[in-house]
Design a protein around this nucleic acid. Structure first.
Lengths: 208, 208
DNA sequence: GTCTATAGGACGATAGAC
DNA sequence: GTCTATCGTCCTATAGAC
């Protein structure tokens, strides 16, 4: 799959302003990482997709780790903007330290519905979430912070239940796991399966 | 951590029959992978641990991916033997096409209790399960077959419920997801959390 | 400021000697 | 069955072209 130097097409030498080039690098890298995982791609692959040299890519992102962080932070920006719009809430509620005004059911349904439309991104996060369990992985800090942030968000939306912390963890676990089943078998109706699973998890903890 | 050529100790040249050497390679590789992850080790590391050259290792396993598959298949054998012992059932019930006589609760509890004792192996499976979502991945066939096998096993144990197929998928998803939470935060009591989560999932589908 | 060219050490893999 | 030798690729770093 990786191209060799002799096969690599002659590059057209078009210089671009940094922001535009960085955006292109992030776009191409996102696609490639989703397909093959972070350890499965090379800087050279990204460079080829962008029509520049590997050193050219490194000029913008520094290291391979820098490339990964750039990709992840860009996804977060896009998704937070879209989710806040879907739920009709300010973006601040979705960021660190914010408390959700939406119900747990509504919030989860919006999240899953969004994910159901971008399987390749979900796959990217699934692969990186597992890979980055190693403290030496470049994205370890990012995913550890994300775990804390997401758990707190779920818990704040579960404030009306008898055990918000446990519900948050169970919801988080069920969502990740069900997405793995769906990614391997796309025939699964992710949203419908999620509704049933979430209902089973939330109901026992509801206070009347 | 990786040794350099100059540091590497002089090898004693002892030739061994292939099955014995392969077993040694799998044992050493399992230990090393558990410590550093599959991407954190090199063929050279395994070769050093076995006292042979890197080409010597590749002679037995073909490729690095072949090494991985050998490790995984060996884990399956070991775990099936241990699980059947824990549950007091014949191994055939746990293999392809077998139907479980143990209850879903008992089976899952044994599975989770076993996993709680080997976090690095669970981590290995979590990483590879996500990576191998790509049909081009060398472990794609292995994990796809594993998905079918595990789902059928869960479903056979859920035969007494109103929707065995859905329960099987939900149980599978919840187990994978909860293990991810636990791997990132080892303070979580995996067995206790699982008992609560499984109860929420199974109860709504129980027939009285 | 953007990018190319080049070189270094480690890696996975292959070929052929013994 | 295991070795040595060798190949191509990987990431990184540096020097310098435009």
């Amino acid at each position: 799959m990786t191209s060799t130097a002799s096969e690599r097409p002659q590059r057209v030498r078009d210089r671009r302003p940094a922001p535009e080039r960085l955006k292109q690098i992030i776009t191409e890298a996102t696609t490639l990482i989703a397909e093959r995982g972070f350890w499965g791609i090379s800087i050279q692959d990204v460079a080829d997709a962008c029509g520049i040299s590997d050193a050219g890519v490194l000029h913008h992102v520094g290291t391979k780790e820098g490339l990964l962080v750039a990709v992840l932070e860009h996804r977060d920006e896009v998704d937070i903007a879209l989710l806040s719009q879907m739920l009709g809430i300010p973006e601040s509620e979705l960021q660190e330290g914010g408390g959700l005004s939406a119900s747990l059911r509504d919030f989860c349904r919006a999240l899953v519905a969004r994910n159901a439309q971008q399987p390749e991104i979900v796959r990217l996060y699934s692969v990186l979430n597992a890979e980055s369990l190693d403290p030496q992985h470049p994205a370890y800090a990012y995913f550890s912070a994300r775990e804390v942030w997401a758990t707190a968000l779920f818990a704040s939306a579960a404030a009306g239940t008898s055990n918000p912390a446990r519900i948050a963890r169970q919801i988080f676990a069920a969502m990740d796991g069900l997405q793995l089943r769906w990614l391997r078998n796309p025939d699964i109706d992710l949203v419908a399966e999620w509704d049933a699973l979430a209902e089973s998890i939330i109901r026992p903890y509801e206070m009347h």
